[in-house]
């Protein structure tokens, strides 16, 4: 995918409209999904993503291939969101413990996780749960959602995500941990367990 994207940028540099349309088809709704965690409303998110495409068209000559095209697009989006009054990256908020009350004072589970599936292929379960994940995303705190979307939905590696969001590797892992913990808990509630 990365190589195909780089070829698209070469074509875009040469003024190829079809390359622009392909890039938009491939990334517009992904960018929008992430933008919604950066700015306060869907309408602003749409403006910011449109502005991102303008940035791509104007800045395509400056792409040097030091990151993937995907990461470059998300970087432009984040910069545009900041310009548009998006939320500044903040320090990791104080602990929010989704699992509070689940452990005894000894530290052992008082209320252990209810099993999700007995000997079911995990990939099948994961496929069914993907739709639920999409519904649960808006319920994650923004900073957690930003990290989770980039890492687990977009598959961007940890070091790149730290760079994009200007967070330290330790803070990135804390946010990812909280996001996954909360998401698991929301999915468990959907499944009728805990």
């Amino acid at each position: 995918m990365a190589d195909a994207d780089a070829a698209l940028l070469d074509a875009l540099r040469a003024g190829d409209e079809a390359a622009f349309a392909t890039l938009v088809s491939r990334y517009h709704t992904r960018l929008l999904r992430f933008a919604e965690s950066l700015v306060p409303s869907r309408a602003v998110a749409e403006e910011v993503v449109q502005d991102t495409w303008l940035g791509v068209v104007r800045g395509v000559h400056r792409f040097e291939g030091r990151s993937t095209v995907k990461t470059w697009l998300f970087r432009i989006l984040i910069n545009r969101a900041r310009t548009a009054g998006g939320r500044e990256p903040r320090s990791v908020p104080l602990d929010d413990d989704v699992l509070e009350g689940r452990f005894a004072t000894s530290g052992a589970w008082a209320e252990p996780p209810a099993p999700w599936a007995d000997a079911v292929d995990d990939r099948v379960v994961a496929g069914k749960l993907a739709g639920r994940v999409r519904e649960c995303l808006p319920r994650l705190p923004e900073a957690q959602r930003q990290v989770l979307v980039l890492r687990d939905l977009e598959g961007i590696d940890g070091a790149e995500v730290c760079n994009l969001l200007s967070v330290s590797p330790g803070n990135q892992r804390v946010l990812l941990h909280r996001a996954r913990t909360r998401l698991r808990s929301l999915l468990a509630a959907e499944l009728g367990g805990g």
Partner: peptide
């Protein structure tokens, strides 16, 4: 804890399968 870790892995896999909306 083994079950919990398995659920975290399923959660990550499920997130990786969320398709972007159609344009």
């Amino acid at each position: 804890c083994t079950e919990y870790l398995a659920q975290i892995r399923v959660t990550i896999a499920a997130a990786g399968r969320v398709e972007p909306d159609d344009l």
